[in-house]
Design a protein around this nucleic acid. Sequence first.
DNA 1: AAGTGAACCTGAAGGC
DNA 2: TGCCTTCAGGTTCACT
Length: 294
Amino acid sequence: MPELPEVETVMRGLKPVLEGRRITGVSLRREGLRFPFPMNFAERLSGRKVTSLWRRAKYILAGLDSGDILLIHLGMTGRFTVFSAAGARNLGEFYFETASGEGGNGPHDHVMLSLDDGTRVVYTDPRRFGIMDLFAETEAADHKMLRGIGVEPLGNAFNEAYLVERFRNKAAPLKSALLDQHIIAGLGNIYVCEALFRAGLSPRRKAGTLIRKKGNDPRLPDLVRHIRDVLGEAIAAGGSTLQDFAHTDGASGEFQQRFLVYDREGEPCSKCGSPIERLVQSGRSTFYCRKCQS
DNA sequence: AAGTGAACCTGAAGGC
DNA sequence: TGCCTTCAGGTTCACT
C-alpha cells in the first residue's frame, strides 16, 4: 500500500503521539516481520525517549535518546493504531474509528509500544512485508536499507538535470526506472502510473530516449513537475483525512478517487475517451492510455 | 552491469 | 455456500 504520501501521512500522524514520549514497554508477538527483529530489540527500546520522527523514502525513522535510530517500513499492509484515552484511531492503510478497547490482540498485531502517558501504539501487518530495525545513529549513512537510496522527489535535488544524469543511456522502461528506489526514493506503482499519464509519456519507453544531445524531450521537465504535483496532492488529501479520522479506507485517504489511470482498466481515458489499458512490467501492473502516452 | 522474474505472506474479490 | 484462481500500494535475491 504505502508509497511516499501514505508513509508521510502516517509519520505525521505518529509524530505528535511519539515525539517527546518515553517508551515504557515493548511487546513483540513474533520473531520478526520480513526480517527478524534485531538483537535485544525490546530491551533497547524500553525506557528510551523518542526525540524525533521523520521520513526518508518509504521509511519512518525515530531518533531515540540512546543514540539509536528505529527504522520502520510498512511493506504492503503495515499500519499503526494509536490507543489513547481519547479512543482508538488508525494511521496507515485504513482510517477508521474503532470501538474496541485495548488493541494489540488481533492475529496480525505484531508490535506494541506502551508510552509514558498511557498511550499504546500497535503495529499491525497481515502480510508481514514490513520491516523494523534498530541501529546506532552513526551507522545510519551505511545502513543497508538507506545507503544508495535516491533523491527525495519533493526535495530540491530532484530536478531535470538529475533525471538527465540518471536516465542517460538507460535501457529500462520509464516505468521501471521511476520505480527504482535508488533513483527516486518513495515513488510506487500508483504514483508512477499517474505521473506518466499526466506527462503523456509511455511507461514502455526506454528511459534513455528522453535524453538527447540536441535538446532533451520537452516532456522531461513536465515529468518532474507532475511527479511533484501528484505526490503533493496525495499528501494534502491524506492529511485532510487524517484530521477527522472518519473516512473509510484508501490509498491515501481520499486521493484514490482521483486516480486517472490506476486500477481503471477498461474505463474511458479522461483525456481522449479510449479505454485505459493494463500491462505487466517487471511483475507489476501498469495502467495507461495507449493514445495519450507515447 | 543491468534488467527481469520469483519469492516472501495473507486476504479480498471474482468466476464457476 | 464454497472452492479455486488471481491479484494486491514493496523489496530482495537469484538468474540471464
